[in-house]
Each structure stands twice: as C-alpha cells, then as structure tokens.
C-alpha cells in the first residue's frame, strides 16, 4: 500500500486539510475558549442562587433554558457553515442536517463546559449541578444529559477530537429525507477518516473511537426525550411557548 495514502485511498494530506478546516471552524465558533472554561470551572452558583432557580415558576426556567439552547445553536450553525463541503450540499440537506443534528452537537459541545469532578455544568455564567434545573420538571432528561456529559468527559477528548466528532454527528446519512445522501455520505466518510487519523495520533487506546461512536444512539435518545418533554410542556403552557420562546427554537423543534 502506498504510504502516502491514508484510509480508503484519501491522501494523508487531504485528511490533514479536512481535520484542520474542521478544528479551525470549531475553535472559531465555540461560545467559550478552553482557557475561559478553565478559569470558570470552579465558579459555582451559590446555595442561595440555586434556591432561586429552584423556586422559579416552571415556565420561566423553561424559557431561560430555551434561550440558552438557542444561543448555543446559533454557534453550531456557524460551525456548520465553515465546514468545507457543507455549503456545497443542497439547501434542503443543509437545513435538514442542522434541524436534526444541531441539538446533538450542542450536547457534544456541552462536555467542554461540564466539570465531571463535581458534576456541574456552565449555565448563565456559573457552574451548577442538576438541582439548578429541578423546576423544569424533567428530572429524567436532566439526569440523562448530565450522565451523557460525564461519560463523554471520561474519554478525555482533545479539542481536535471534539471538533471532528461534532462534525461527524452533524454530517450524518442517518437523517431521513436527504435529497443527496451520496454527497452527504462522501463528506461524512472523509470526516470519519480524519477523526480516526487524529485519534490514532492522540490515543494509545484504539477503542476510544469505538467508544465515541457507541455514544451516538444516546445522543439521539436525548433529543427524542427533549422533544417529548417540550410537547408535554407546551400542552400545559402553550402561551409561554408561542409568545416567549425564541423563534429559532420553535422553528427547529416545532412543538
């Protein structure tokens, strides 16, 4: 085999170019740099602040979370736009991939802003535990999201790996109704080869990529659970959703 060729006859040079483009796109579109997160990591919401979150009306906290999620999604859209090849897909497929994958990418990115040592996540400027979200009335979803973040953190991924994994989650042929699935598949394959290439360089343990891929069904299950909780919430608080939720959030999750 030609040593200049990497996986599946994609040259090593091309794999490097793909990886560098995605890493750059990720770094340019993260809400917080790794340094900023490091500095904030031990700034936690005080006992009094947690009590205030817990005593908020359910619909108020839902609205606050919807705003935070929508903000994070806008950065994911920018990430997607900067991935070479994404804007060359037809518009239908760009919208479809983002609609079905943006929340999954937000969840992957969330592991950067999760402190596994005290099980807290960055929310509205400080870190807080699951109890911050108690008033949402979605204990199962919140607990599953925290479990997912903790399990992803345990893989100790580098920024490069998080970048490539985010792209692999987004550019997925598993999404129904794609108009050009072959084009998406070609892009997805290159991203996976680039991810494999980077992981082989960084990890001695060859299982890390397999472990990472095995987390994808959990991501999908979390998004389904989010949709179900949103539907249940909307039945009780239709006005809050219709009037106060961000338009982009409503457009994406279509309650």
């Amino acid at each position: 085999q030609d040593p200049q060729l990497g996986h599946n006859n994609v040259s090593m040079g091309e794999l490097d170019r793909i990886a560098q483009n995605i890493i750059k796109s990720h770094l340019e579109t993260c809400q917080y740099t790794a340094d900023e997160l490091q500095q904030l990591a031990w700034q936690t919401h005080s006992y009094e602040e947690v009590k205030i979150y817990q005593s908020k009306p359910r619909d108020v906290l839902w609205q606050q979370c919807a705003i935070q999620i929508t903000h994070a999604i806008q950065y994911v859209v920018e990430f997607a736009k900067r991935i070479s090849g994404f804007m060359e897909l037809c518009q239908n497929d760009q919208i479809l991939l983002l609609k079905s994958g943006c929340l999954e990418v937000v969840l992957v990115r969330m592991c950067r802003a999760f402190n596994p040592l005290n099980n807290t996540v960055l929310f509205e400027g400080k870190y807080g535990g699951m109890q911050v979200f108690k008033a949402l009335g979605c204990d199962e979803l919140v607990s599953a999201v925290f479990d997912f973040a903790k399990s992803l953190c345990s893989l100790q991924l580098t920024e490069e790996e998080i970048a490539l994994f985010s792209a692999a989650v987004l550019i997925s042929t598993d999404r129904p109704w794609l108009m050009e699935p072959r084009k998406v598949q070609k892009l997805q394959e290159k991203i996976y080869f680039a991810l494999q290439h980077i992981m082989q360089k960084n990890h001695m343990d060859e299982d890390t990529l397999a472990k990472l891929i095995s987390r994808i069904p959990t991501l999908s299950a979390l998004c389904t659970l989010h949709t179900e909780e949103l539907q249940a919430f909307q039945q009780l608080h239709p006005e809050t959703v219709n009037v106060l939720f961000p338009p982009l959030y409503k457009e994406l999750f279509n309650p």
């Binding site: 806008q74 859209v77 920018e78 804007m87 518009q91 919208i95 609609k99 338009p247 457009e251 994406l252």
Partner: peptide
Amino acid sequence: KEKHKILHQLLQNNTSPGDL
C-alpha cells in the same frame, strides 16, 4: 423554505468570527 425561514436566513448570512 418558509417553514425554516430563520435557519435559512442564518445560512445565508455572511458572518465572520468577530461577529459571533
């Protein structure tokens, strides 16, 4: 397109890293 008006707009906008 109509159903995903905002997403469509976000995809069309030319944003630079400084805009984020």
